[in-house]
């Protein structure tokens, strides 16, 4: 469903160019739950931002649901973001002036499609993620975990092809992190969502089907979850990360 080929991205600082992604290749299948891990500066967030069409990339191609994301104009990219992508930020990015329900409905409001079906979907998503009781509250009135789950509900309101999450548990305690990861699991299980998550949290990553390890702007390893316990997968992850760090 998502194909990334030879993706390059560098940042300019004055006259200097700093390459961050140096030819990333990967693919994501439908209903997969994938995590990307790697040390700071490895290009995880940049990769995610390129897929989300938040920043332009230099070379390579990204194909989402059969559509190539290169050379699209700003309006077309906005449509892709709205209809085919869902995004969960580390710091939630809920709009303070709107209630939780309104926040969940924002992608629909942008499309001018707030109909009964949208309201029903918002309600069901909030119930699914255990935040129905916060529907009429404002973001400032709820906990961090609830805010992030509201953000997950928002990301799924338009039934996107893929849900992209950037360090979704980065600002949360372990208990709240757990509820957010459970929300992702529910989304995949009950709604058939495809999830692509960047994280530092090996515990959160251990819930995924596959973990891609990124180093110096390249995919250096991929770990597939076998018929193993979550703890065993997490241990394998930690070992791989340790090996990656030591070979650097």
């Amino acid at each position: 469903m998502l194909y990334i080929k030879n993706l390059h991205k560098s940042y300019q600082s004055g006259s200097k160019s700093y390459p961050v992604l140096k030819g990333v290749n990967l693919s994501v299948s439908s209903q997969e739950f994938i995590a990307v891990m790697g040390p700071s500066g490895s290009g995880k967030s940049t990769l995610l931002n390129c897929i989300s069409c938040y920043i332009p990339f230099d070379e390579g191609s990204i194909t989402l649901g059969g559509q190539t994301l290169k050379n699209l104009d700003a309006d077309a990219l906005a449509r892709v973001r709205n209809e085919q992508l869902g995004f969960v930020f580390q710091d939630f990015m809920l709009l303070d002036g709107l209630t939780v329900r309104e926040n969940v409905l924002v992608p629909r409001i942008i499309r001018d499609k707030v109909d009964a079906e949208a309201n029903e979907r918002a309600d069901s998503l909030m119930s699914l993620f255990g935040i129905a009781h916060t529907a009429d509250k404002y973001p400032a009135e709820i906990s961090g975990g609830e805010r992030q789950r509201a953000a997950v509900a928002r990301s799924l309101i338009n039934k996107p092809l893929i849900l992209l999450a950037d360090e979704p548990t980065g600002n949360l305690d372990s208990k709240s992190s757990r509820t957010v990861i459970e929300a992702f699991e529910n989304a995949r299980r009950q709604l058939g969502a495809t999830i692509f998550m960047v994280t530092h949290d090996s515990c959160a990553a251990s819930f995924c089907d596959r973990v891609i390890l990124l180093q110096d702007g390249l995919v250096c390893d991929t770990l597939q979850k076998q018929n193993e316990s979550q703890q065993a997968f997490q241990d394998r992850l930690l070992t791989a990360i340790k090996t990656m760090s030591s070979t650097k």
């Binding site: 906005a78 449509r79 892709v80 995004f87 990015m93 709009l95 942008i110």
Partner: peptide, 16 residues
């Protein structure tokens, strides 16, 4: 900007 950026991230175009 934070507000506009969030709306853009959620798919609002400039024209919108």
């Amino acid at each position: 900007a934070a507000q506009l950026g969030t709306l853009m991230a959620l798919g609002a175009s400039r024209a919108r």
